[in-house]
Computed example of a mutant assay.
Amino acid sequence: MSNIGLVIEEKPADIGNFLVGRLLPFREKRAVGPFVFIDHMGPAALKDYQNMDVPPHPHIGLSTLTYLFEGSIQHKDSLGSDIEIKPGAVNFMTSGKGVVHSERTPEYLRTTDKNLHGFQIWIGLPKHMEQSEPTFHHTEADEIPTWEEKGIHYKLIAGELLNHKSPVPTHSKLFFLEIKSKETQKLNIGETLFGEVAMYVLEGSVNIEGHTFSGKQLIVAKNSKLCEFEMAENTTIYLFGGEPFKEERFIFWNFVNSDKALIEQAKKNWHGQNLEAFPKIPGDDEEYVPLPRAILKGTK
């Protein structure tokens, strides 16, 4: 019996003036473990007059994880964080009851040609943390655990797996793992995984049960314990997974929560620009992303 539960094709989505490939959520699969949202950004070649600009926007009930392969993003938030995200580093912001942030091309790159490529990820919070105070943590690339076994290179970007633990301060049992191989390799790592798992092929290809997958797809396993595959030479893959929550997580625009009433209140607070709920971002307070019309309906 096949262990391929679902294959999700990337679909285009606009995040401001930048087009991404959306992998989660999907109509048949709203989450993989605690991962509720995955965007594949790029690879994009931006001209000297093209820049990424996602103005201030709010979040509740989630952690954002930004991981870049190429390029640079300036992150600013209502906690006062102001940091440049570079390839290999991990930006991890936990919104809790409410936070506002913006993502833009850094000032020094705005008039030059540049590339941008990476993942934008949302991770749901345990129910007891959905109303916690917001926090921010930045982990540099050289702090991420990396190791090699039998010619295969591993990097544990977040979570705990294979006797390694990432310093990224996640709040539930999960893993976000990079695997690279220069040679054709067969892997059977199911016994080390837990909860749910999905695979994304960034470069090269993998063979699973006689089927070849080579990118722009999220492959969801029926059973993480049966996770085995063959990597072609010069292949890079990412595994996302972990223990799912007992309660359903609802997503409305940038808000995630197990309680719809808290989402409704967040909609009202953002639409009314309630500064107690959603403070301004120091140094980026002249504009904001308004609540979309479709969500605005019924919000006063």
Results as ranks from 00 to 15, higher is better:
A221G: 04
I237T: 03
D53K: 13
K29N: 08
A45W: 11
K11A: 00
K173V: 02
Q217G: 02
I60C: 12
A232I: 00
L19S: 15
Q273G: 00
Y108P: 03
E276L: 10
I4E: 03
E243R: 08
R22T: 13
K225D: 03
Y238K: 07
T66Q: 06
H128M: 10
E103F: 12
I157W: 07
A158I: 08
N115K: 15
Q131V: 07
I251R: 15
L193V: 00
H101V: 09
R293N: 08
P282C: 08
Q273L: 11
F240V: 02
K300A: 12
H40G: 01
G16D: 04
I123Y: 02
S205F: 08
R104T: 10
N274K: 15
P292V: 06
H211I: 05
I85E: 04
I4V: 14
H40V: 06
E148V: 15
S132L: 02
F119E: 04
P244K: 03
H211G: 05
E10M: 13
I4C: 04
I208L: 10
I4L: 12
G61T: 02
P25H: 09
Q50N: 05
I83D: 06
E203T: 14
V7T: 12
I4S: 03
I73G: 07
V168H: 00
I38L: 14
S166P: 07
I4W: 04
S2W: 01
S132V: 07
L187V: 01
N274P: 14
K165T: 14
L226M: 09
I189H: 04
P134F: 04
Y200D: 00
N274H: 15
I85V: 15
F35Q: 04
L174D: 01
S78L: 01
E228Q: 14
I60R: 11
H138A: 11
E230R: 09
G98A: 09
I60S: 11
T192H: 15
R293I: 03
T184H: 11
G118M: 03
P12D: 05
L6W: 05
T184G: 06
E196S: 05
G71L: 02
G151N: 03
S95C: 10
L193M: 10
K173Q: 14
K150R: 09
F136I: 05
A13L: 13
F240K: 01
R104C: 00
G124L: 03
L125A: 10
P134D: 09
G61F: 09
S214V: 02
A44M: 11
H117T: 00
P58K: 06
S172N: 12
D48E: 14
K29H: 08
E84R: 15
C227M: 10
K86M: 10
E178P: 06
F69V: 02
L68P: 11
G190Y: 00
H75D: 03
H57V: 08
K268G: 05
L46Q: 10
A232K: 05
K76Y: 01
H128S: 14
G61Y: 08
P12R: 06
D14P: 05
